[in-house]
């Protein structure tokens, strides 16, 4: 295409290197990036499955409570990572018109850092710092919930308008940050000497996780409803996690071995669904007009690639809870 722009504009940009130049027709969607991301998502999914298979192999165990704590930490990490990336992008969409909007990605990023580093086997000075970071997540997440509700309320149509629930500040999203904070605090507790039997810790954590699963599933349900469940796989996050919540809740109420086994499977399924969700969402971005080549629009407008890992986090947290509940059984054996 001949460049007919005025000279001063023509000098703005050097010609693109061959590999970056648009090929063929301008409006075409590009497949390559979409496929690559799809593959990456599938790989992530595979990792979760591999870890699941791995976990079934007998191996020398660390102290069981510490092992459970590690799972909970990984759960908190996945949640924090998901919120950090998602809020960074969504608040960018919102133009950071309110300074408080910087808080969410900043706090989530801190929480991510606090959970990403493996803590020393015995609690040291940094334990308090970690607790502070997680408490900040909890507070920010909770405040965020309130802020989002207030924000919707002041728009035309208010809280009863589906348009606001679909497209304004997402009601439930900051809950992910609060949950990450809760799991981070729980992990800190698990690193310290128990003040209650691990079984009870496990049941509390399982109950909390069941509630979180329901809430997150409701959020996914709302947004997938907005997408009219146009792809049958969109039903997965509104079926698998509630099922896991049900079984996990039941196991919390009555930690029978059978229920715990079932809950374990359900939690692995939820985590795997979360990982697969990334791949599906990457595919969804590609299906938007212009595909990944139009990423500046489609990453924001397409399905949020960063959202599904929340289910990975909750699945891992549920597994941590189940590990804790297993501890008594092992003691009896």
């Amino acid at each position: 295409m001949r460049d007919v722009r005025p000279d001063h504009l023509r000098q703005v940009r050097k010609p693109l290197p061959e590999w970056r130049r648009p090929r063929g027709h301008g409006g075409d969607t590009r497949h390559t990036t979409g496929r690559m991301l799809g593959v990456l998502g599938l790989a992530a999914c595979g990792l979760v499955v591999a870890q699941a298979l791995n976990a079934r192999k007998p191996r020398p165990r660390a102290e069981p409570r510490a092992a459970a704590a590690a799972k909970v930490r990984h759960g908190a990490m996945a949640l924090a990572g998901s919120v950090a990336a998602d809020s960074l992008m969504e608040h960018f969409r919102g133009g950071y018109c309110n300074d408080a909007m910087y808080l969410a990605p900043a706090v989530a990023g801190t929480a991510l850092a606090a959970t990403a580093v493996r803590p020393p086997a015995t609690p040291r000075d940094d334990a308090v710092a970690r607790d502070v970071a997680h408490a900040a997540s909890l507070v920010t997440g909770t405040a965020g919930l309130a802020f989002h509700v207030w924000n919707i309320g002041k728009r035309p149509g208010g809280l009863t308008s589906m348009n606001n629930l679909f497209y304004a500040a997402p009601v439930g999203a900051p809950g992910g940050l609060a949950a990450s904070g809760l799991y981070g605090l729980a992990e800190g507790r698990l690193r310290r000497a128990p003040i209650m039997p691990p079984r009870v810790e496990g049941r509390l954590l399982a109950g909390l996780t069941a509630l979180n699963l329901l809430a997150t599933s409701a959020e996914a349900g709302l947004l997938h409803f907005r997408g009219a469940f146009q792809n049958p796989f969109m039903f997965v996050p509104v079926t698998a996690p509630p099922a896991a919540a049900l079984v996990l809740g039941a196991a919390a109420a009555d930690p029978a071995a059978g229920l715990r086994r079932l809950a374990r499977a359900a939690c692995w399924t939820t985590a795997a669904a979360g990982a697969a969700g990334v791949a599906f969402h990457a595919w969804g971005v590609h299906r938007n007009h212009g595909g990944w080549r139009n990423w500046r629009q489609n990453l924001i407008q397409g399905p949020p690639v960063a959202a599904p890992p929340a289910f990975v986090g909750l699945g891992l947290a549920g597994l941590g809870a189940l590990d804790l509940m297993d501890i008594r059984d092992e003691g009896r054996r």
């Binding site: 301008g26 629009q297 407008q301």
Partner: peptide
């Protein structure tokens, strides 16, 4: 605005 449209 094609293929890119608007987000905000």
């Amino acid at each position: 605005a094609a293929p890119r449209g608007y987000v905000r």
